[in-house]
């Protein structure tokens, strides 16, 4: 457990530091954030055709309200935490990769729900938007990461030491 936590902290700090570099911002964070805005707009357009995406901004053409997806709201940090937790936990690489693939989809999927919900909360009541944006969704996304990680841990095979002894 100690080894897991040390690896988790090291990986998390390293990945977060990497995320902040201009290279990662230019080639990964900004393109991903723009894609997130486009995906969110694409989903919202199914029931609200007056919504547009410009770069990282999601905007309503009908009333002019817009939200800009900034650091902390693009799900990159939550994904970093999940990646660090999965990579640090003892498991085979096949299971780690499977956990990462499913886990990242789960985290980013909920993050799209966050972006869309905030877009409509902001049009309805700005105080509620602020509360949901700054506190509620932050906690829910981390809870999502924790639940996804716990479910992944649950799928791992038993450690050898815990298997029942077999008579030789």
């Amino acid at each position: 457990m100690v080894r897991f936590f040390l690896w988790f902290l090291v990986l998390q700090a390293a990945l977060f530091g990497l995320e902040l570099t201009p290279w990662a911002q230019q080639w990964f964070v900004v393109p991903w954030t723009n894609t997130l805005a486009a995906i969110s707009a694409g989903i919202v357009k199914l029931f609200d055709p007056q919504v547009l995406a410009h770069g990282k901004v999601l905007k309503s053409a009908s009333n002019g309200f817009a939200v800009s997806i900034e650091a902390g709201c693009n799900g990159v940090e939550a994904t970093i935490v999940l990646v660090a937790a999965v990579l640090a936990f003892p498991a085979s690489w096949r299971r780690k990769l499977a956990g990462l693939a499913i886990g990242i989809v789960a985290v980013q999927g909920l993050n799209i729900v966050r972006v869309i919900s905030l877009f409509y909360l902001g049009q309805w009541n700005f105080s509620v938007f602020e509360w949901a944006h700054l506190y509620v969704w932050q906690a829910l996304i981390m809870l999502d990461v924790l639940v996804v990680w716990l479910l992944w841990v649950r799928t791992l095979p038993r450690p050898e030491a815990d298997l029942p002894a077999v008579a030789a």
Partner: peptide, 26 residues
């Protein structure tokens, strides 16, 4: 990172037995 990750880490550390029990089950 810290505002949400530290609570999760503290909780896992406080419930290591629960987690170990959890990891043993499929």
């Amino acid at each position: 990172i810290l505002p949400t990750v530290v609570p999760a880490v503290v909780w896992v550390l406080m419930h290591r037995r629960l987690l170990e029990d959890f990891a043993r089950r499929r």
